[in-house]
Design a protein around this nucleic acid. Structure first.
Length: 847
RNA sequence: GCGGAAGUGGCGGAAUUGGCAGACGCGCUAGCCUCAGGAGCUAGUCCUAGCAAUAGGGUGGAGGUUCGAGUCCUCUCUUCCGCACCA
């Protein structure tokens, strides 16, 4: 009897997989493909158990699908650009690349020690020039199509990271990475026109049936589609000359325009400065507006800010009523949403209502609920419910929804506005004033303007620089030989762009690169992506719900529109895995509560760790780490090992099950084996209930022990003798069938141990060659069934009947049984329900 | 405020379509085995009453639909997550 020594076994098989290139794949049209991907990793240093849970989930899927005959692509790589490397460089005087490569090496070792079945020959790191050159290539295509453009705008600035952040990267008013409060800066900045795809991204989200509803909701909210109208309010004396003097507002409720008693400008609105310049005291005017603009940065942090505004002293004409209304500047009007100006309808918008009450502006009710008598003078809150128009001239009496449609059309026909769709989603600012990222391949020429670097000159390589200061200007601007270049068009002295790209650019298409990672002519061969794409199973953290996952959907469409891919959506099925907590908190180095997988591997082996993490909860759920749970998994593996090892010789010499005459115990064991096969097959795919799959295997092992006990072949403990034989050939066959199925089904979870046992059982070719076990429906079928019997909804008896018995016979049997008669005696039987054998018998009595 | 998800034993969690609530594991209890056990094996473990058979109660709370509800409907409480002045 050999005891279970995971460390030896695991090293042996990891080496075997590497030596035989076991997980490397090529396109093979004769097999169905399965592209299994986990979000690649930022090489931060050490992976903890929370990180690797995701890779384990993917690995179970990949290994299972391989056994089911799929051609499985399961690659891994590194999201290797980014600020921490640069910060580490500043702190430790290490080059970002040195730091990054060392971390990659360590983390790769961790993943290999866990036995994750990656096609390592496809490994990529986004900081490799052979990767980021294609960021530059794609950027150039986008520039040509007008999808990449430069504009001067207020951008989110993180003082600590010394760089710009995209809107999506601002969380609660702070930097998504370090939490520092974000300020606004006006900068020239490169943007990608994701808004061109806003509508498609929104509509297509409806078709993502295998994504979690939560993620889709977040994406919908983020895109924020809103149907409404733009309406122009003319400055006095400007009627008919809209272009010269008007304020355009965006509203979703044009039907309430008769109640628009004022117009509000956001403090960033260009007309604010015009009004200030023409006002009696321009300095005071500007100061008030500037105060509001300054509020904005902290407004989000503190939550509610007091609604404030000031009268500009100017008026505009309400285009529907002809009434002159005052123009105010209001701090709660956002400069970058809609037109940056709104009409104030206090009776029907709560914010406008509060504003009007505060500054004693008039309130006019123009929508009345049925039989309602709302009065602007006494209203205590805005009314936004159903109703019909009043005080609205020719529109009176119309339900507001209808008025909304008709008044939008009216505005368009009169040239004073038009229906429009507004999105909350903004273009994606990708300029970063840092070093460790992809250089933006543009050259600024004094005579030709912005000229993309010709494809033949790509990549624009990051120059090696040695000093990192962390100052806010781009480090690349400090490298004259990088900056000073001739214009590719006219040859005159020009300056290279010194911003680098947001690292989310890197991660927005890496899943395509994995299909063809060594291509030197294109980002990837379209034929290879046509074979592998889209990703069939993608798993990662929910924190990427609106960043990475929306950018990737955007980039897939860009690649589609330049003709390299034919699919719209990159990820067919998405699983967002839960985090691993310890002491109730997310694992993090700063909290000192990380569990290093290597420590656990050393104690219990990678297989036990994998099994425990998969068993403890469904993949989507967050879990609390417990050492005792891991010990339980280890105990289970020992149990499997002992019985498999104990029976090795029996199994090796046992016949197959065909043609044997089995007794009842044999048949019960076989039934359990085959029903387990059926159940686990479903549990892994499509259900991805990996925890119940493990539970089912534990049940099978429990039953196997009981069977072995009955047949006198149960292992007793440490000092067991190896059993060479068993007296019944049927027993041997059943043991073989059960153990083989068990080892194969367990192998995606604990691959090392199972490969070892499989080999020990006399199979030279490994578990993938053996294939996934198939459920024999005849063997799985129940011979008898226990039917619960209820009387008036209460369980009163159980009936054991043959599985093929007829329902009427069962009902008769139930009614005749003493346990049932105890409750039906002297009562009138109203009805009995039992149509199928799987259905309990339900007897209803009266009296 | 809006949107989403979820509330089941001492704990993690099971329960595909409305059909025996608590699978499986952890922990705990008892027994066996052992020089020993932080090993292994066997049995027990939702609550209440009872020696027991058994009876009653039980899936956050209150109603409802149904022969039958953890599951469906209405209301409500709590927790977590996301968005948050988006006109």
């Amino acid at each position: 009897m050999s005891s279970y020594k995971p460390q030896d076994i695991e090293q042996k098989w990891q080496k075997h997989w590497a030596d035989t290139r076991a997980f490397e794949v090529t396109e093979d049209l004769s097999k169905p493909k399965f592209y299994c991907l986990e979000m690649f990793a930022y090489p931060s240093g050490h992976a903890h158990v929370g990180h690797v849970r995701n890779y384990m989930i993917g690995d179970i899927m990949a290994r299972t699908m391989r056994m089911r005959g799929f051609n499985v692509l399961h690659p891994f790589g590194w999201d290797a650009f980014g600020l921490p490397a640069e910060n580490a460089a500043i702190k430790n005087n290490l080059h970002p690349e040195t730091w990054t490569r060392a971390n990659i090496a360590h983390m790769k070792g961790q993943l290999q020690r866990l036995g994750i079945s990656y096609a390592w020959e496809r490994e990529l790191a986004t900081c490799d020039a052979v990767y980021y050159t294609w960021n530059q290539w794609l950027f150039t295509r986008m520039f040509e199509k007008g999808l990449a453009y430069r504009r001067r705008s207020n951008v989110n600035w993180c003082e600590s990271c010394q760089t710009v952040l995209a809107n999506e990267q601002v969380v609660d008013g702070g930097c998504w990475r370090c939490g520092t409060t974000v300020t606004l800066r006006e900068l020239e900045q490169w943007c990608l026109r994701i808004t061109a795809y806003a509508d498609e991204l929104l509509t297509a989200a409806e078709g993502l049936s295998q994504w979690p509803e939560k993620v889709l909701t977040m994406q919908r909210n983020w895109i924020g589609r809103s149907e409404g109208a733009r309406v122009r309010f003319a400055l006095p004396g400007q009627v008919g000359h809209w272009a010269d003097g008007h304020i355009e507002v965006f509203t979703t409720r044009i039907d309430t325009i008769y109640g628009a008693m004022f117009v509000m400008l956001g403090p960033e609105h260009p007309m604010v400065e015009q009004f200030a310049a023409a006002s009696p005291d321009p300095a005071a005017f500007r100061a008030k507006a500037a105060k509001f603009r300054a509020q904005d940065k902290s407004a989000r942090m503190t939550g509610e800010v007091e609604k404030e505004g000031f009268d500009t002293g100017r008026t505009v004409t309400n285009p529907f009523t002809g009434q002159e209304v005052p123009v105010w500047v209001a701090n709660f009007v956002l400069g970058d949403y809609g037109t940056g100006a709104v009409m104030g309808v206090p009776a029907h918008d709560q914010r406008d209502f509060e504003f009007a009450r505060k500054y004693n502006l008039p309130v006019r009710v123009v929508v009345q609920p049925e039989g309602g008598t709302l009065d602007g003078a006494t209203l205590t809150e805005a009314y936004d419910g159903d109703g019909a128009l009043v005080e609205s001239g020719e529109w009176n009496g119309l339900p507001w929804q209808e008025a909304n449609r008709r008044m939008t059309a009216e505005a368009a026909s009169r040239g004073i506005g038009e229906g429009t769709v507004q999105y909350r989603l903004k273009d994606w600012g990708i300029s970063r004033q840092r070093y460790w990222g992809t250089p933006i391949p543009i050259i600024h020429c004094p005579s030709c303007g912005m000229v993309p670097v010709p494809d033949k000159d790509l990549p624009v390589e990051l120059p090696k620089i040695t000093e990192f200061t962390g100052r806010g200007d781009s480090p690349l601007a400090q490298v004259p030989e990088f900056v000073n270049v001739p214009c590719p068009k006219c040859g005159t002295a020009a300056r290279r762009e010194t911003d680098t790209m947001d690292t989310f650019v890197d991660s927005s298409w890496y899943f395509f690169r994995f299909c063809d990672p060594h291509n030197n002519d294109l980002p990837f061969d379209p034929k290879k992506v046509a074979y592998w794409g889209p990703v069939d199973f993608y798993s990662g953290g929910v924190e990427h719900a609106i960043l990475h996952l929306i950018y990737s959907r955007f980039f897939s469409r860009v690649y589609r529109d330049i003709g390299l891919v034919t699919i719209d959506e990159p990820f067919t099925r998405l699983l967002t895995q839960g985090m691993v907590l310890r002491h109730g908190a997310v694992m993090s180095k700063s909290k000192g509560n990380v569990v290093d997988p290597d420590d656990m591997i050393q104690q219990f082996g990678a297989d036990a760790l994998r099994l425990y993490v998969m068993f403890v909860a469904p993949p989507e759920k967050e879990v609390e780490w417990t050492d005792s749970g891991l010990e339980g998994a280890f105990r289970f593996l020992n149990r499997v090992w002992r019985i498999a090892d104990h029976c090795t010789d029996i199994v090796r010499s046992a016949p197959a099950v065909t043609g044997l005459a089995f007794d009842e115990a044999d048949r019960n064991m076989r039934r359990k084996t085959h029903s387990t096969i059926r159940r686990i097959t479903q549990d892994i795919d499509p259900r991805v209930h990996l925890n119940t799959a493990v539970a089912a295997l534990m049940e099978l092992v429990n039953e196997l022990y009981a069977y072995a006990e009955l047949r006198g072949v149960r292992p007793l403990g440490v000092d067991d003798e190896l059993r060479a034989s068993v007296d019944r050939v049927e027993t041997a066959a059943v043991l073989r069938e059960t153990l083989e199925a068990l080892v194969l089904m367990l192998s995606p979870f604990t691959p090392h141990m199972c490969e070892e046992l499989w080999a020990q059982m006399g199979h030279a070719d490994g578990v993938v060659a053996a294939g996934w076990p198939v459920c024999d429906e005849d063997a799985a079928r129940d011979e008898s069934v226990e039917i619960p019997v209820q009387v008036n909804g209460r369980l009163r008896a159980r009936l054991t009947v043959p599985a093929d018995s007829r329902p009427e016979a069962n009902i008769a049997l139930a009614l005749a049984s003493p346990e049932v008669q105890k409750w039906t005696d002297g009562k009138q039987i109203v009805k009995v329900i039992h149509a199928r054998i799987e259905q309990p018998i339900s007897i209803v009595v009266k009296g």
